[in-house]
Design a protein around this nucleic acid. Structure first.
Lengths: 186, 186
DNA sequence: CCGAAGCGGGAACGACCGTTCTCGGCTGAT
DNA sequence: ATCAGCCGAGAACGGTCGTTCCCGCTTCGG
């Protein structure tokens, strides 16, 4: 695979990310990805042999980027309690962004989880990776039951995203943060 | 509209409910609804002039049924605190059901929310109706800020459903219940 | 300069889906 | 009995989408 193919892969993934996230996977055809990326269908199908595999690559890159962005935000703080709460500050900023359309992974799972087993696996892997990261943040707290606390914080993250999506308001991040603050040990 | 049409409407809605919920809306064609309901396409389109309107009717009936089931469960208790926590017990039982596939409203919103404005409105109305019901349950508690508490409980409900969907486990209901118990005034 | 291989643009194909139409048969009033 | 109108079954239509194919052009080694 040549380096012109590498560049094409990046451009295709950029286009897929924009279009899949903002319009949904089933609503976006391969020709729209060709139009936005400028990569002809022939090369596009050489880089990604099927739409299903492109969807998986889209999800894998989102996973990498999102978790890196979260870690960067959390890294701004040193106090263990603030590090956990910063997760919900990050959500709040995200909900404010113009193109916010909910969790790409949950959306993909609803749309193609039944037909694209590898995509479904990728969604679950993302969820588990985020939980593992949260578990690390919780580990340095003096929690009575760190695993249970992590699970509760995960429910708050997921619920905030989905409630923000449906209500169209960023407030659920505040509600989740307030709930998390009550659950954390002082 | 005759009563044979009424019977057809019910059979079509039954079929749509089963198929839309378990396979997704876009994955189910009108012919599969015809096959399962036994209602010929001609009559089906007289009862529901388009698939979009059938989707809205499907969501509206789900809203009615789900909220009635929730109210029935909560009604088994008289203690105000137990009435709130019973919501999460209900979720736990629901997650155990064989055909559980997440929240029909969130799924519909992800799948067709962009193309079917009336369906999107119906999803938001359901969310608001559930919140209003929760607000009633919270109202009789001695909460410092009942509205804020209601918002936090809503985030826990939504998060439990979505986390259960992706992990395939009913445990998120327990986690949400534990978090809610911590948030409720004693 | 020449032939071959690879390229991009876009047409083509096959499958599917929402919706409508056709056709043969049944019903029921006269 | 007859004729008009309605019905169910399924074919047909128009559009979309994922994927492949064709054609004319470029490029580059000999």
């Amino acid at each position: 695979m040549s380096d012109v193919d590498d560049q094409a892969r990046t451009r295709v993934l950029d286009a897929a990310d924009t279009l899949f996230y903002s319009h949904g996977i089933r609503a976006v055809g391969m020709d729209r990805i060709r139009d936005l990326s400028g990569v002809p269908l022939r090369r596009l199908y050489r880089c990604f042999p099927s739409k299903d595999e492109l969807v998986v690559a889209y999800l894998r890159r989102r996973d990498r980027v999102a978790r890196a962005a979260l870690a960067e935000r959390v890294g701004r703080h040193t106090d263990p309690r603030e590090r956990v709460l910063e997760v919900y500050e990050w959500l709040h900023d995200w909900f404010h962004e113009a193109g916010f359309r909910g969790c790409a992974f949950t959306n993909a799972f609803s749309e193609v989880g039944g037909d694209n087993a590898e995509a479904a696996r990728t969604v679950r892997a993302h969820q588990q990776a985020v939980r593992a990261y949260l578990r690390e943040l919780v580990g340095v707290l003096n929690a009575a039951d760190p695993d249970s606390l992590t699970d509760q914080l995960m429910v708050l993250v997921s619920g905030a995203i989905n409630t923000a999506l449906i209500t169209g308001s960023p407030e659920p991040a505040r509600h989740a943060r307030a709930a998390a603050a009550s659950l954390l040990p002082s």
